[in-house]
């Protein structure tokens, strides 16, 4: 992927995270930088869980495949 192709992808993701942060403020009615960043971290944490799990599964699968290739 070229650098300029990353721009729309990152933009979508950043906007998506922002949209996920907003409901917290709509319901509580309080908005400040500290709570905004805390909410961003929370959302990123939940986004990171599937990415982390997928990465672990991929590494395990790759390791198994490599060890199978060495034995065969």
């Amino acid at each position: 992927m070229k650098k300029r192709e990353w721009v729309p992808a990152v933009l979508f993701i950043v906007l998506g995270i922002h949209c996920f942060v907003m409901p917290g403020f709509v319901l509580t009615g309080s908005l400040n930088v500290h709570s905004y960043l805390a909410q961003v971290l929370h959302v990123c944490f939940w986004i990171g869980i599937p990415i982390f799990l997928t990465g672990i599964i991929y590494l395990v699968w790759k390791k198994r495949k490599r060890s199978k290739g060495e034995t065969s």
């Binding site: 998506g16 922002h18 949209c19 996920f20 942060v21 709509v26």
Partner: peptide, 14 residues
């Protein structure tokens, strides 16, 4: 609506 839009944008990004 915010959360739905957020999930669509995140999905589109990835």
């Amino acid at each position: 609506i915010w959360a739905g839009t957020g999930s669509i944008l995140l999905a589109l990004g990835f």
